[in-house]
Amino acid sequence: MAEKPASRWWIAPAAAGVAFLAGLPLLLSAYTVSLLISVLAYASLATSWAFFSGTTRYISLATAAFVGIGTYTVALLSDHLPLAVVLAIAHMIGFVIALGVGLSTLRLSGIYFVIFTFGLTELIKQLVIWFEINQTKTLARYIFVNASGTLIYELLLATATIVIAGVWWLSRSRVGYALRVIGEDEMVARHSGIDTTRVKVLVFAATSAVMSMVGAVLSLRYTYVDPNIAFNSLVSFQVLIMALLGGIGRPWGPALGAVPLVLLSELLSGTFPHHFGIALGICFVVIVFFLPGGVMGLVDRWSAWLPRSALRRRKES
């Protein structure tokens, strides 16, 4: 049962790498820094998405909902409270909402969970629009926070580092093990004494809170926010495809998948915004058909976790 103690030789180079990344804004142009901001944000999102959805096989499309919650928290509160407090509140609101959503929906299986989480983004968007129109009478909000690109970059670098290190550490802990058993066979997990609901809901809430945090930090880039910008369901799909492209189940995979797609988005969205959607769609099809094992794809991963093939492996060894 016990995992082999992993060799830790790479911790020093990784720390040096983070330190190097932290120093980058001194060397690079503002444009490159803003590109790196997107990479770091999506790397954090994809990593936290993969830690829950990748391991448990509950495919969540609620990423955009939680990112939007973070964004809106900043839009609502940044005039009244200091930035650090606002970020902490965004994190907490994400956690609490995810807790509620998790408790009510994690019983749903397969396609129903996918559809519900997708709908959740639209639902929250509609509720915010309804609230803004009827209660506050403003549909657009301005964010006047004096945050430089470098500050946003460093905040997101810290987030990404903590998320990737946290996922690496957690996936080796009892929680990670429990998640993997749930992904393999939830019934077995329950029978072997894992409190599946608690593990699922807590991990879902924790990863969603990270998404809200990322959304909150990213919103500092904007000056203007409305519900359609904040709750953009495309984000959910982008994060999903990044994680699949990079390969889930390894701490580095999803973060690596973020790089090419952020670059592609940057390349296309300025001049051909609609073509990015088409490219994303083709990505989905190509990954399923041609890269199931190539980039540590989802399908291959999952098939390796399924009970039957697990048995086969045991027999062979």
């Binding site: 396609i111 990015f276 959607g277 088409i278 994303l280 769609g281 989905f284 099809v285 399923v288 989802l298």
Partner: peptide
């Protein structure tokens, strides 16, 4: 899982 991903892909292609 495969059909979800492929048909999502188609959704984006057609919509795009």
């Amino acid at each position: 899982a495969d059909t979800i991903l492929v048909t999502f892909g188609l959704l984006f292609v057609f919509q795009g």
